[in-house]
Simulated scan of single mutants.
Amino acid sequence: MTASVHQLHPDRAPTLEPLIALTAADMNAVNQVILARMQSEVPLIPELAGHLIAGGGKRMRPMLTCASAALCDYPGTRHHKLAAAVEFIHTATLLHDDVVDMSGMRRGKRTANIIWGNPASVLVGDFLFSRSFELMVEDGSLKVLKILSHASAVIAEGEVAQLTAQRQIATGEDTYLHIIEAKTAALFAAACRIAPVVAEAGEDAELALEAFGRNLGIAFQLVDDAIDYTSDEGTSGKSLGDDFREGKMTLPIILAYARGGEADRRFWKEAVSGDRVADDDLAHAIALLRSTDAIGDTLERARLYARRALDALAPFPSGKAKAALSEAVAFAVARAY
């Protein structure tokens, strides 16, 4: 890993603690909004939403909104409702994703669709999307509404694009990057950009923080896709090889398939089509990923985007907020080690 990412703190592993400490007071206010707005006279809604919202997630995206506000020296409170809206968008997409993927575990717990069923998960996801738009409208800024509503549309497009690429061995790297930029990075970018909007920090700050969030989001997803083949449920919150069994064409498989010999490519075609998904097949897949250095190169790509995220922070003055955001970048990449 390059010095700019890995050696921010050469004496210790990077953590999210500086970001958590920086945003603690703001996040208390954000969490109050989240708890208040997930309530409903229909008991199943807060019960199901609370299962996921209280499920041990880091609240990374709303924390980025709060940290970006701190970076812009914003003294107000408008970002609290907007950070809650960001978290509702994220939670809604997770509920829908788990239905689409037929996932059984998330963050080490049974998914909502396993407990309450697919229809309830989809409908509560819709409820949370609606709540997020209520919060945006209450803020009153058309610019903020445009940023977050556009991000919501892009996320949905990314999920559909991923669905159409599933079990398609011909999926290339460009298509994959387009998918993760849409389904993951778009919300990171929007979460960061709305803070300089409410802070009236100017377009340069908006574009810089949008670039920061977008590149961090891409790095974050690249690491996630590598971890699927290297980590256990306790570390990643999902079962080893979930992407493999679901036939998701992530960068590790794309690289390994491109670099493999005839027999290896035949294996990947059978695996991606769903014919080779036993535990022995997963073990063989991991061996091929390692022998072709597909995982290592995926992580190297993540480090490239992490460096771009750090570069985007260059115009901002040094201080606690910039240091916390920089370490969050290093943490995002270090999760794989």
Rank of each mutant, 00 (worst) to 15 (best):
Phe316Asp: 01
Val154Arg: 03
Ala306Tyr: 03
Ala85Arg: 11
Val137Met: 03
Gly247Ser: 02
Tyr74Phe: 13
Gln39Pro: 09
Lys322His: 15
His150Tyr: 05
Pro43Ser: 14
Glu41Ser: 15
Ile115Phe: 01
Ala302Tyr: 03
Met102Trp: 02
Ala24Val: 00
Gly104Val: 00
Ile254Glu: 15
Arg301Trp: 05
Ala208Val: 11
Thr175Lys: 15
Asn113Ser: 06
Asn118Glu: 14
Ala92Cys: 12
Thr298Phe: 03
Arg78Gly: 02
Ser103Cys: 04
Leu240Tyr: 04
Ile89Tyr: 00
Val329Phe: 05
Met38Val: 07
Leu216Asn: 00
Lys269Trp: 04
Asp101Arg: 08
Ser273Gly: 07
Pro252His: 03
Lys183Thr: 09
Ser132Val: 09
Phe212Pro: 12
Ile20Arg: 10
Ala324Thr: 06
Leu187Phe: 10
Leu207Glu: 09
Tyr74Gly: 13
Thr250Gly: 12
Val86Asn: 06
Tyr257Ile: 13
Leu48Phe: 07
Ala112Asp: 04
Met38Lys: 07
Arg259Tyr: 05
Ser130Met: 07
Leu95Lys: 08
Asp204Thr: 12
Thr164Gly: 04
Gln168Phe: 08
Val33Lys: 15
Ala263Thr: 15
His9Met: 15
Phe212Cys: 13
Asp232Tyr: 10
Pro317Trp: 03
Arg131Trp: 07
Thr298Arg: 02
Ala332Val: 07
Ala92Glu: 01
Ala190Cys: 04
Cys192Phe: 05
Met60Val: 13
Ala170Leu: 04
Asp204Trp: 04
Glu41Asp: 15
His178Glu: 14
Phe316Gln: 02
Ala330Thr: 10
Arg245Ile: 00
Ala321Trp: 03
Asp243Lys: 14
Leu282Met: 09
Val154Tyr: 03
Ala256Pro: 10
Ile114Trp: 12
Met38Arg: 10
Ser318Leu: 14
Leu216Pro: 00
Ala70Met: 04
Glu134Gln: 06
